[in-house]
Computed example of a mutant assay.
Amino acid sequence: MRTEDRSLAALGLDGVPAQEPLLYPGRPITAPSLLTGDELLELDVRPLRLGEWFVEERAQEAAAQRRLDEALVDRGQAVTGRRHPVIAVGSNASPGQVTYKLTRLGIPAQVPMVPVEVRGVAVGCSGHISPAGYVAGTPYVDREATTRLVVTWLDATQLKAVDDTEFPDYRRAILPGDSFEMTMPSGERLGGAYIYFSAHGVLADPLTGRPRPGGGDQAELLAALLKDSPRLSELLGPDAESWVATAGADAAVREHGTRIFGEEGWVLPQTEFLTYLDDAPRPRLYDELPPLGGSLPPQG
């Protein structure tokens, strides 16, 4: 079994976009994992529910496997069935950012993170400038798209902490699995999951009128926005470094830049997710979101 260093630093996953805006959206996980503090442990996918997958742990340079739910209980954490599946579109797919958001509040960063194929959702750019100075990503509905996105399984305290970092610029919806097919690496189809979408709309490409693709290199995005708008260049230019330094230091500048997005005619309203706004008295848990029929791959 492998016993290599699984620290975020060793894996190159310790970057925090909230502290270094041009890192946004940060490096996402690429394989099913358990984030546990400053380490990222590998999950061995089984044709079963998430809690029955195995996590590879190290003890005195030896590796051993045990079920994910058992590993969470031993750490004093909620099992997967008592957690809330949340689709990460931007930096919440980055272990470094998730760890930063939680641990700065004294909340344990113990989070299962799994890449999931999501049908009907694409990633664009939000129509606002974030408090850190970058232009964040946002999902939008595209019925022809299938996008690989990371789902984080958050307990109630972790979900509240992430909510506080997203509101009021983002709103939370719950996507039903019968309208937005979500397929786990195990073959399980999720019955639903939460997603945050921008309250400021989606930035459009001025040439095509279609949403600008999100999730790419932040410096390239900001350079393109500066090129496309002399007003933004005057306010935030001449380059991406000056943009994040200026915007990150002054809320009035961020608000002005956000207004320019609208005045340039770049902002497409987000209405499709409004149907799915989460108005339940409490969030739904993984064990309350039944998988669809035939959710597990055939075994033989």
Score class of each variant (00 low, 15 high):
1 M>D: 14
5 D>H: 08
6 R>G: 03
7 S>W: 00
8 L>C: 07
8 L>Y: 08
8 L>D: 07
12 G>V: 00
13 L>D: 13
14 D>Q: 12
16 V>N: 10
16 V>C: 09
17 P>Q: 15
18 A>N: 08
18 A>C: 07
18 A>E: 11
19 Q>M: 14
22 L>Y: 12
26 G>W: 03
28 P>A: 01
28 P>F: 00
33 S>K: 09
34 L>Y: 11
34 L>D: 09
36 T>Q: 12
40 L>R: 00
40 L>D: 00
48 L>G: 03
49 R>Y: 15
52 E>K: 10
55 V>H: 06
57 E>T: 14
64 A>Q: 13
64 A>R: 14
65 Q>C: 13
66 R>L: 12
68 L>I: 09
68 L>R: 10
69 D>Q: 09
73 V>R: 15
77 Q>H: 13
78 A>D: 13
80 T>W: 09
80 T>L: 06
81 G>D: 13
84 H>W: 06
91 S>K: 04
94 S>E: 02
96 G>C: 06
96 G>T: 11
97 Q>S: 10
98 V>G: 01
99 T>Q: 11
103 T>P: 01
105 L>G: 08
109 A>I: 03
112 P>D: 03
113 M>T: 07
116 V>P: 00
120 G>L: 02
123 V>H: 02
124 G>W: 00
125 C>M: 11
128 H>M: 12
129 I>K: 02
130 S>T: 13
130 S>Y: 11
133 G>K: 03
133 G>N: 07
139 P>Y: 04
143 R>Q: 15
144 E>I: 12
146 T>C: 04
146 T>S: 08
148 R>P: 01
150 V>G: 00
151 V>I: 04
151 V>T: 04
161 A>F: 09
163 D>I: 13
163 D>K: 15
163 D>F: 08
165 T>M: 01
167 F>D: 12
167 F>Q: 15
167 F>P: 11
169 D>M: 12
179 S>G: 10
179 S>W: 08
180 F>L: 05
180 F>A: 09
181 E>N: 11
184 M>K: 10
187 G>Q: 10
188 E>N: 10
191 G>H: 07
192 G>A: 08
196 Y>M: 04
198 S>A: 08
199 A>M: 10
199 A>W: 03
202 V>N: 08
208 T>G: 02
209 G>T: 03
209 G>E: 02
211 P>I: 01
221 L>R: 07
222 L>S: 08
224 A>N: 11
225 L>C: 03
226 L>A: 04
229 S>K: 03
230 P>C: 03
233 S>N: 14
234 E>G: 13
238 P>C: 02
239 D>V: 10
240 A>E: 11
240 A>L: 03
244 V>Q: 05
244 V>I: 06
245 A>Y: 06
246 T>G: 02
246 T>C: 03
248 G>K: 06
249 A>K: 10
257 G>V: 07
263 E>D: 15
265 G>E: 03
266 W>N: 03
268 L>Q: 13
269 P>R: 01
269 P>C: 05
271 T>Q: 09
272 E>R: 06
273 F>N: 09
273 F>E: 12
279 D>G: 13
279 D>N: 14
284 R>E: 10
284 R>C: 06
285 L>G: 12
286 Y>P: 00
292 L>V: 14
295 S>D: 14
295 S>I: 07
300 G>N: 07
